[in-house]
Design a protein around this nucleic acid. Structure first.
Lengths: 188, 188
DNA sequence: GTCTATAGTTAGATAGAC
DNA sequence: GTCTATCTAACTATAGAC
């Protein structure tokens, strides 16, 4: 998270982890395998945690979307047995996502994981939107696929703006997006 | 654009440019200065080109926003005297932006340019929105600052989704965003 | 399973001829 | 202004002792 994946060296990892390069290569066949491991463990596990949190909330669609907006601030989590290190050195989900996208072009091997996440998130949003229509929370003349794309766009844009335009206070940005998104989909 | 800035070596540049390392270092004191040069020349010039294109269009706010959406596809441009190379090897603005953000963390020296762009874009959007309200194209009970944040969020999210979720057809994504953005701001 | 030591390669950068 | 030749430092990865 400090250097970005391509700019962190095995020697950096050696110093921070307390293991020597020899030990690190005992567990991972090369540097790329460390990346693969992290993406699998952290990004995907965090996405599932987010889904869980949303589905447990029992709120309205807008309340659920607010949970997703705020999930960027959450620390990355993983399975119980490997959680120790993440408790000691928490990693922000949003920053992790940005680090991850920054290597997207140079590491095509991680793209399948990314695609899997996108597909899963589509199905997830579909469920949320369908439920909101059934409960008459939002207009029912809305195209579900269009709304999913709109929500995805706003969530991604929010995440990116928070990171790259830090002079925008996140609470105002969140409020503005929530308010205007609701204007677009509310029953009239 | 092929390797990303940190992963491209002077030797790569040597091969592609036809100049040797010695010559390259005659013009640039170090590799970072090449980056500075590109950001200044390309990113900022392209933003001004986009503004120009929008202001010349004389369309409605939504038509102007559509121009901005589509600007990601445009080739990067610069001043007339250095345009030759970009004509021969066009660079997509959207891809350039992504390459640029991918080095944001590791190259703090380029952040001031980024801030300048964000500030300029705020003033630019403010003008567009104010004009649309005056012309009664959109609701006048809308908070301008909130709408600017909303528009910025959607434009940025669109750009990111196009790059990282390429299975989403851009024309549908554009249409969905335009339609729902308009739903949020249209006069009722 | 962890270490030391180091191989082999490539990186960014420079000196000096032309 | 461009080149050749080369330096030093850093990198990934491995061999082999313990």
């Amino acid at each position: 998270m400090k250097y970005g994946f391509d700019n962190v060296s095995i020697k950096h990892i050696q110093e921070e982890s307390g293991f020597t390069a020899g030990s690190i290569y005992y567990y991972f066949k090369d540097k790329d395998e460390i990346l693969q491991y992290m993406v699998n463990k952290y990004l995907i596990a965090s996405f599932h945690k987010m889904k869980e949190k949303v589905l447990d909330s029992n709120g309205s669609l807008m309340e659920k979307i607010e949970i997703i907006f705020n999930f960027g601030d959450s620390p990355i989590i993983t399975e119980v047995e490997s959680q120790d290190i993440l408790d000691k050195f928490p990693i922000n989900y949003r920053e992790f996502w940005v680090m991850y996208t920054s290597i997207y072009h140079h590491h095509p091997e991680i793209r399948p994981d990314f695609c899997k996440l996108c597909d899963e998130s589509h199905d997830f949003y579909y469920g949320l939107v369908q439920e909101a229509i059934n409960k008459k929370e939002i207009r029912d003349d809305i195209d579900i696929e269009e709304l999913i794309m709109f929500i995805k766009t706003i969530l991604k844009g929010y995440l990116v703006l928070i990171v790259f335009q830090s002079n925008l206070p996140s609470e105002y940005l969140l409020k503005a997006n929530m308010k205007l998104l609701y204007e677009a989909i509310k029953r009239r």
